[in-house]
Design a protein around this nucleic acid. Structure first.
Lengths: 242, 242
DNA sequence: CCTCCAATATTGTCCTACAGAATTGATGGT
DNA sequence: ACCATCAATTCTGTAGGACAATATTGGAGG
């Protein structure tokens, strides 16, 4: 059921204008994509849930073509799984998959942190990085919800962007950071948040100082700790293997 | 109908068929996907060429739906680029993009090599790895064409598979290794091939011996050298930056 | 309570149609 | 000739309908 008030201002991709009268103009696929992505992240579509095409076409007022393309896009980002003749289901990570993803993120983001610290004095890089990570210096207490998740996402994205390697930044963005964090977010404690934030600051300082080794090590520790945290979680929140 | 000056594709009008490979009946998308992928790798579709939907639907005897899904899939693997309102074009890497991809591959495959050497004694791993890399021990001279490219692809895939990290293996496979190598293949010399093969063997030996450090270092050197090689290439083979 | 089968639900594919963006080609002014 | 402009032509983005193949479900029979 589509709420008349349209969705909350979604992340940010592009200004798509929705036509006022049922007709769409441009970016239909993106609109559907964002709706589903936000819906999954917000829990409106639960992990494991089937996404029935006919339901969504009537719900969103789009035809099957764009809807399927949106599925394909979500699938490429690891948000949904496509099973032949059974359509798309909201992805639910197994414990093993989560560990694997942390391992990959480790390799990628550690590289990003090193590159960022090496590039920090290139024109514009420091400026953009400082602006992007500004929120992490705040002393305000974090909510254990979207607020922290968002700050975390922004921080890691800022590092990837500062690396100067655009392909790497894209990869990092698509590494379903959001999905992992969503599944974990129910388990976060205030202590964890504080610790994580402290690590973010430490990494940011190393990058700003151009200290490649410290940045490298800081990011590795940060992700190792996060992975260890994920490893301790009760198996019930994961999809059973196979 | 646009003709980008390509020689006429071997328009095998009769859709080579339906079920020669025991695949399920629903494989229309996959069939198109593979046709295009092979065509791009074989040079039938040139980098930069536009892929016109109406041409391909008549050429392949499929409708636009599956064709567009195949585009999306190719796009996810980095084989084609999708530009809004201009459709799909065969991707052509810029020099910078190539360097970036080598950097990423470095991080991922070095990780894979380390994991592989650590996992080599897990049940079945050594067996599968030995079988997969068997071709590299051959003393037969390599052709500077698809033969080497294929051997190279198989070797790197074998390492990724042996890592035990399935997500990593998928990522490595999709890291457009094929695309990079295709663009480079015209520049390969017999000396390069010999050297590359020697490095492959050295890495394989380290993995089989369970020597994580040697595997790590071998892979790093191998990719560093390959990246350096790519860096020396004449800029003319690359897409001009923006 | 379990197995098998028919009814129903859903996906995969094809087709046709049309609006709007992009490309091309022609036109008119300088 | 040369450039700007506008119109005709291509193509893509979407909609919507149709139908076969496959999956799921609920009921009948053992």
């Amino acid at each position: 059921m589509q709420d008349a008030g349209m969705l909350a201002p979604p992340v940010s991709n592009e200004t798509f204008d929705i036509d006022t009268l049922g007709r769409t103009r441009g970016g239909t696929v993106d609109r559907v994509f964002l709706h589903l992505k936000d819906g999954i992240l917000a829990g409106r579509y639960a992990p494991g849930q089937r996404l029935i095409e006919s339901d969504l076409t009537s719900e969103l007022g789009v035809s099957r073509g764009p809807l399927r393309e949106a599925f394909r896009k979500l699938s490429a980002e690891g948000m949904v799984e496509s099973i032949p003749n059974r359509g798309a289901i909201v992805r639910r990570l197994s414990h093993k998959e989560t560990q694997e993803l942390f391992q990959i993120r480790g390799a990628l983001e550690v590289l990003a942190a090193r590159l960022a610290s090496e590039n920090i004095d290139l024109p514009g890089v420091r400026e953009r990085f400082e602006q992007a990570v500004a929120p992490i210096w705040s002393e305000a207490p974090r909510n254990i919800g979207m607020t922290y998740l968002n700050e975390n996402r922004i921080f890691h994205q800022a590092v990837a962007d500062a690396s100067g390697n655009e392909q790497l930044a894209v990869l990092c963005r698509q590494m379903q950071l959001p999905l992992i964090m969503f599944q974990l977010s129910g388990m976060l404690t205030p202590e964890t948040l504080t610790l994580s934030n402290r690590e973010h600051r430490s990494i940011a300082r190393a990058i700003l100082a151009g200290d490649a080794h410290a940045a490298w090590e800081g990011m590795r520790n940060h992700l190792d700790r996060a992975q260890g945290f994920a490893n301790e979680l009760p198996r019930t929140i994961f999809r059973s293997p196979e």
